Simulated assay, not measured.
Amino acid sequence: MKKKQILALALLSAIGLTSVAQADDHNTDDRWYVAPFGTFIKSGGDRGAKDDWGGGMGFGKMLNEYFNVELKGFYQGFNSETGGRWDLTGGTADLQYYFFRDKFSPYAVIGAGGMNTSFRGESGATIIGEAGAGFTYELHDNFLLRSDVRYRYNNNLNAHLQSGTEEFHDMTVNVGFVVPFGEKPQAVASNYEAPAPIPAVDDCSTRDSDADGVNDCLDKCPGTMAGSKVDYQGCPVQIELKGVNFKYDSAELTPNAKAILDGVASQLKAYPQGKEIEVQGHTSSEGGYKYNVRLSQHRSQSVVDYLRSKGVTDSMHAKGYGPDRPVAENQTEAGRSLNRRVELVWIE
Rank of each mutant, 00 (worst) to 15 (best):
I347V: 14
A189S: 00
K103W: 10
G311D: 13
N116C: 02
V279Y: 04
P106N: 13
F135A: 14
I110G: 14
D216I: 06
T165A: 09
F37M: 07
V279L: 09
T224R: 09
F78V: 02
G73D: 08
V279I: 14
Q280V: 14
A265N: 02
G90C: 01
G58L: 05
D249F: 02
T92P: 01
E286H: 10
A196S: 06
G83N: 07
A196K: 14
L307Q: 10
E138G: 05
E167C: 01
G287R: 08
A23C: 03
F135I: 03
V20T: 07
Y75T: 10
K42P: 00
A194N: 07
D25M: 14
L63N: 05
K3C: 02
M225G: 02
S300V: 04
S19N: 12
V173E: 03
P272N: 06
Y98N: 13
V230W: 11
P255K: 15
T206M: 03
L253Q: 11
Y321H: 09
S250D: 05
H317L: 08
S13H: 04
A200M: 06
K103T: 15
D29C: 01
C235F: 11
S209T: 08
I41V: 14
D249G: 01
N158E: 08
H282F: 07
E122N: 15
Y107T: 07
